[in-house]
Write a protein that binds this DNA or RNA. Structure first.
Lengths: 216, 216
DNA sequence: CCTACCGATCGGTAGG
DNA sequence: CCTACCGATCGGTAGG
């Protein structure tokens, strides 16, 4: 009899992405074979190719899903009228850090492996990344209206992304510092600088104002 | 008759490293074949193997030469008694940025490709990187003696390295912003934070590093 | 004739 | 310093 597409087809497809992102994050895109991915997913390579046309499509799916989430996150903050414009940057930082810790592998793949994609697919993802950067640059512009050059807002945004994206290289998942505890430190440093930093104590206290509505 | 080693043997060896670093930086270590390196150096693959035992040895040489320079740079600042302790961090940042712009390819290889090295070689390089981080953490500790936890000094140092190392991903070599013009911006942001930032792109103002602790 | 998946192997190319 | 290759493994696909 005619069989319909397995009811768990989409689930399977999604779970392959999780396994692939884990392998790519650990061994790099080029350092991971399709056999590695298949093994990580407890699938034969043949089955793997049933769900994804080729290796690039795996990478594209991982990167695009993730960057789309980031764009959505930026938009949701921009459109949330309960967030004062001058609080947007802090909210963005905190929410990004939460998103990062939930999607460590995807984010690592996005920042490290997208360069191996064919030009067309790469540009599509880069365009989305530019939207994210623009969102941060705009939030920075609100705080520094005295700075006219949009290029400088973007430069400051990129310095911020440097701090955030570099976390992956040194923040041990099992260490005493976590994405959650580092968020106040990043905000403190970024907003007030080293000179203005208050006691960087063990207990990163839940921040008073806008950070509390971050969970929402 | 017995031939002596070519008089330009060392020069050739060094120039291969330049070509290899360029290729590794552009296409990644795994994305670069030994044929690619040979071609970039205008050498046959056979000749290449005359100078370096294997691909790993190329990567090790590039990374080790570079990280050794960074360690030397840290030591020279620490031992320079004409530099007041509280100025060390700013001097370190500025000198690192100069070094980075002179060795962009090597630095990119150091931050992106060392993970593909066998454990022993990798650890050797990581140990040197830790010395560099320690140097920055110590310079930060001078500015914030009120912070007792050495772990936090290192965390702040790593946030700083994030800003610096991430520059490679977005600072176009031919853009209007350069490593030299970005240095004051980084210092300004890092020392005074966004709130304290003045007209960006102008001369960095003398640091007011009051250890005044504001309690939340 | 469909989807789901297997064991086996394709043509090319990697490092050496 | 080059050409000619090797063992292995790559990403991707065949028949059933």
């Amino acid at each position: 009899m005619a069989r319909t597409r397995a009811h768990n087809y989409e689930d399977q497809k999604e779970s392959i992405l999780v396994g692939a992102a884990d392998m790519f994050a650990r061994k790099g895109y080029l350092g991971t074979s399709m056999n590695d991915v298949a093994e990580a997913c407890a699938l034969s390579k043949g089955s793997l190719y049933h769900y994804y046309r080729d290796k690039d499509e795996l990478l594209i799916s991982i990167a695009e899903n993730h960057v789309t989430r980031l764009v959505t996150l930026v938009r949701s903050v921009e459109q949330d009228e309960t967030i004062p414009a001058r609080d947007r940057l802090q909210v963005l930082i905190t929410r990004f850090l939460i998103e990062y810790s939930d999607a460590q592998n995807s984010h690592r793949v996005l920042t490290e492996d997208v360069k191996y994609l064919p030009e067309a697919a790469r540009q599509r993802i880069l365009d989305q990344e530019r939207v994210v950067v623009k969102g941060f640059a705009d939030a920075i512009a609100v705080l520094r209206p005295d700075v006219k050059a949009a290029e400088l807002h973007k430069a400051v945004a990129m310095l911020l992304f440097g701090m955030l994206n570099w976390l992956f290289t040194w923040l041990r998942p099992d260490g005493s510092l976590t994405h959650a505890t580092i968020a106040p430190l990043v905000c403190e440093l970024f907003f007030n600088g080293l000179g203005g930093m208050r006691e960087m104590s063990k207990k990163p206290k839940p921040k008073s104002l806008s950070a509390t509505r971050v969970k929402a």
